[in-house]
Amino acid sequence: MGLKRTNVYADEEDLTLIKEAAARMGVSEAEIIREGIHRMALATRVWDEPFLSDEETFDLGGPVASADIRAAVTSAHDSRDRQAGERAG
């Protein structure tokens, strides 16, 4: 994927948070901004076909509790931070 330069206006407080996150993760501020743009582009994408038909379902293996979701998100976040640190180091 090629990169194209663009200019955006951002809230000063957001830029401060980005600067802090970049320093903490050992990546550039630009990488944080690019990832944010990419995530929002994917999150707002409209697909031509539904992921599942009305007849299809996913078996998640039973009820999923809020503690299970919290543990999964925490684990994924920690893993992402470790990977970012390895890329920087």
Rank of each mutant, 00 (worst) to 15 (best):
M1S: 14
M1T: 13
G2L: 12
L3W: 11
L3T: 14
L3H: 13
L3P: 01
K4H: 13
R5A: 13
N7C: 08
V8D: 02
V8G: 02
V8M: 08
A10P: 01
A10R: 11
D11P: 02
E12V: 09
E12H: 06
E13R: 14
E13I: 11
E13W: 10
D14N: 14
D14M: 15
T16F: 13
L17E: 15
L17S: 13
L17W: 12
I18E: 01
K19T: 13
K19Y: 10
K19I: 04
A21S: 11
R24G: 03
R24Y: 12
M25K: 05
M25V: 02
M25D: 02
M25I: 02
S28E: 08
A30H: 10
A30R: 15
I32M: 05
I33K: 00
I33C: 01
R34T: 04
G36P: 01
G36N: 04
I37Q: 02
I37G: 00
R39A: 01
A41P: 00
L42D: 07
R45I: 07
R45D: 05
R45S: 09
V46L: 10
W47T: 12
D48M: 11
D48V: 07
D48Q: 14
E49N: 13
F51M: 15
L52N: 08
L52C: 08
L52H: 12
D54A: 14
D54R: 14
D54L: 10
E55M: 11
E55K: 15
E55H: 12
E55S: 14
E55T: 14
E56W: 06
E56Y: 07
E56L: 06
T57F: 12
T57G: 05
T57Q: 10
F58N: 02
D59M: 05
L60A: 13
L60K: 07
G61C: 05
G62Q: 09
P63Y: 10
A65S: 14
A67V: 11
A67N: 05
D68S: 08
I69Q: 03
I69W: 02
R70H: 05
A72C: 05
V73F: 04
V73N: 03
T74M: 08
T74S: 11
A76Y: 06
H77I: 04
R80G: 00
D81S: 08
Q83N: 10
A84W: 00
A84Y: 03
G85F: 06
G85N: 10
G85A: 11
E86R: 09
E86V: 06
R87M: 05
R87G: 00
R87H: 04
A88V: 00
A88D: 04
G89F: 01
G89A: 08
G89Y: 02
G89T: 05
